[in-house]
């Protein structure tokens, strides 16, 4: 389990290869990361535990990413959200920001781009905690 100083990240993408790539890269930066490939499992976990940051894909079976992030913001409005999407459209970008996401990354992206987006989120989280 993460310590109180550690930033807790929930990562949700139905393509296992995405979590396989991102999770270790974020853990190496010192973050505590839990990854999920099913949105229902991620949502159940979000109800159980506090996460500072959620990184979610949009196009998923069952509860899609937009529904998921809406629920996240409804339950814990202070949770920062980064959306990643392989099928970016003007509508999804616009709706994501209306829901209050911090960043929107279209795939493909390099690890550095994600790490920069996470660093920006962490800065905001820490400012709020201080």
């Amino acid at each position: 389990m993460g310590t109180s100083e550690q930033i807790n990240i929930l990562l949700l993408d139905d393509e296992p290869i995405v979590s396989k790539r991102l999770k270790p890269a974020l853990e190496r930066k010192g973050y505590y990361v839990e990854s999920f490939i099913r949105s229902i499992d991620a949502l159940t976990r979000f109800h159980e535990r506090e996460f500072d940051l959620v990184i979610t894909d949009l196009k998923m079976e069952g509860i899609d990413g937009m529904e998921f992030l809406t629920e996240v913001k409804k339950l814990k409005p202070q949770t920062e959200v980064i959306v990643i999407t392989g099928f970016a459209t003007m509508e999804t970008a616009k709706e994501s920001f209306q829901q209050g996401v911090l960043d929107f990354l279209a795939k493909p992206f390099k690890l550095k781009e994600m790490q920069d987006a996470v660093a920006k989120a962490v800065k905001r989280i820490q400012e709020r905690k201080d």
């Binding site: 393509e15 290869i17 995405v18 392989g86 099928f87 970016a88 279209a106 795939k107 493909p108």
Partner: peptide, 10 residues
């Protein structure tokens, strides 16, 4: 590669 597929998908 996943990277290629993602570029195609966009």
């Amino acid at each position: 590669t996943q990277y290629s597929l993602e570029m195609i998908n966009q």
